[in-house]
Design a binder for these strands. Structure first.
Length: 259
DNA sequence: ATGGTAGACCTTCTA
């Protein structure tokens, strides 16, 4: 089973690019982030015509996440538990039906810039909520994949030029510590565990020639429960998509699980 | 050199 995560930076502006990739790659499941539209404006019919089921947690203009799957989606939960006042659409969790069901979450973790503001506080609070929820999910002992744009650069090796990110919310000690705490619950970073994976970035800014200069970072992650990690076959970063026409600033990351 | 681009959509915010 191929499970993808991709921050598309507007599903409607990216529709041809995304559908073209789906036709070529045929993922079984895809977690999408930054769809930047309300549920009613998500191109559901276009995905259905390719044979996919769709679940959307949308929002006008900003954020918004979705999961698309070949098999039906069960137990759809919209929003990250722990703060009823949080109205950002950044989390959707569902169970991919089949002989071996897989629980997946599509995560758009807050960016948090600039540091020293309420945006950074919101990011850290959101990460605490995610850790609390992940602990409860791990207790279920299911095949679980927490996939998305984490807006976290885990280690210096995950940036082309780590020094340039020193003042950025994505690379703060608190941010990296919260990500480590999350993993220490018993989650496996698929990219780090996969045989042969190295030197992969998943995001290059539109600005300042970042792509041309390979000024990239690895911030799109798939965290696996033990049952999922046991089934991990491969991880592929689709770097070529950054050079496509009308690219997102993020590229797809695909894990293959033995399911 | 403190820059630059992209998307939503009304004017500036977010990234």
């Amino acid at each position: 089973m191929k499970i993808a995560t991709w921050n598309v930076n507007s599903i409607n502006a990216r529709l041809d690019t995304v559908l073209g990739w789906f036709k070529a790659e045929r993922p079984d499941v895809a977690c999408l982030q930054e769809i930047k539209c309300i549920d009613e404006k998500f191109p559901t019919e276009e995905f259905q015509s390719l044979g996919y089921n769709v679940a959307v947690n949308g929002q006008k203009s900003y954020n918004g996440v979705a999961v698309v799957s070949r098999t039906p989606l069960e137990d759809v939960e919209k929003g990250l538990p722990g703060d009823d006042a949080d109205d950002h659409a950044r989390y959707l969790e569902t169970v991919i039906s089949g002989p071996s069901p897989v629980r997946v979450a599509s995560i758009y973790l807050p960016n948090g810039n600039p540091i020293g503001t309420e945006k950074f506080d919101y990011k850290l609070a959101w990460m605490r909520r995610l850790q609390t929820h992940a602990r409860a999910l791990l207790d279920l002992e299911e095949i679980l994949v927490l996939a998305g744009d984490y807006n976290v650069i885990p280690e210096p090796a995950d940036a082309d030029d780590p020094a340039s990110w020193a003042g950025d919310a994505l690379f703060q000690p608190q941010t990296r510590g919260a990500f480590r705490s999350l993993k220490w619950l018993g989650l496996t970073d698929a990219y780090m565990a996969a045989d042969g994976a190295a030197g992969g970035y998943t995001f290059w800014d539109y600005q300042a020639g970042a792509w041309r200069r390979n000024h990239g970072i690895r911030i799109d992650h798939l965290l696996l429960s033990p049952a999922a990690a046991d089934r991990l076959r491969s991880v592929t970063i689709h770097k070529d998509m950054r050079g496509a026409d009308k690219p997102s600033d993020h590229v797809p990351v695909v894990v293959e699980l033995e399911i």
